[in-house]
Design a protein around this nucleic acid. Structure first.
Lengths: 131, 131
DNA sequence: TGTTCATATGAACAGTTGTTCATATATTGT
DNA sequence: ACAATATATGAACAACTGTTCATATGAACA
């Protein structure tokens, strides 16, 4: 984890106003800090997972993992309003997780990224392992 | 996606009160529906990703991916209160993402699951690919 | 046993998120 | 050009989330 990435060596938030925090393992903390990815990276990764953290979006992704579908297909499949589905698809599109293809007035949605499949697989395996 | 899993064939939320929704691709919707994982599964996977969707927890996971650390190490490393760190670790522990090892009064935290590493890698690659 | 230190927990508040309802855009067929 | 249809968007509200502050455990050393 966290290799070949922009690092955050220049962190300045080390010292609190006083020596309130006790450095139990000063050496370990120092080396870990040097190899931490930059905050922007962890933030971006967290944002990616946030997109995947909604059950409705998860079901949409599962569906699109099998076949490309349009908004009203998904609405019928999931039993929700087309507006709600469209809003979620907007989120997924913004994160480049799904891609669109227009054919007349119908917009087809499909998974855009193999990382999404693998990440889902990891989540699924973890969940089933834990019970 | 969604193979060898408990299916949700017995969904009852198919018909809205009236024929408000137009089934554009009825056949595709039917086959996708049959192969959808049960709602409990997608819910659990979404919950797993929710745990990963916070920047603070993401940084904690990156740190623990390098070395096991105690609460006050993490607090010093991340520049936050030990209470805040402890709360986040509680969330991670509940999701079985980290494991604890006690040594005297110090509790060491470490990653518990290789799925977490892989999932992170997927998120990271996706993020860097998108830019 | 009592005190100290590392960690955990509870309550509460501010900020964020997802849905609904209403309306807007865009494309096809007449 | 106009009406119909598929999708998109805006505003707003309820529900959820993460932090802070205060307090409680629980283990070790005197």
């Amino acid at each position: 984890m966290a290799q070949d990435l922009p690092y955050a060596n220049n962190q300045t938030d080390i010292a609190p106003d006083c020596c309130e925090t006790s450095f139990i393992h000063e050496e370990a903390v120092r080396t870990v800090r040097e190899r931490m990815p930059a905050p922007e990276v962890t933030q971006a990764v967290a944002d990616f997972f946030r997109v995947m953290s909604d059950p409705t979006r998860m079901r949409i992704l599962c569906a699109l993992g099998q076949s490309e579908l349009c908004v009203c297909d998904l609405a019928a499949l999931l039993g929700m309003s087309e507006s709600a589905v469209s809003h979620q698809l907007r989120t997924l599109r913004a994160a480049r997780v799904v891609r669109t293809r227009r054919e007349g007035r119908i917009v087809y949605y499909a998974l855009d990224d193999h990382h999404v499949r693998t990440a889902y697989k990891m989540g699924e395996e973890h969940v089933l392992e834990v019970l």
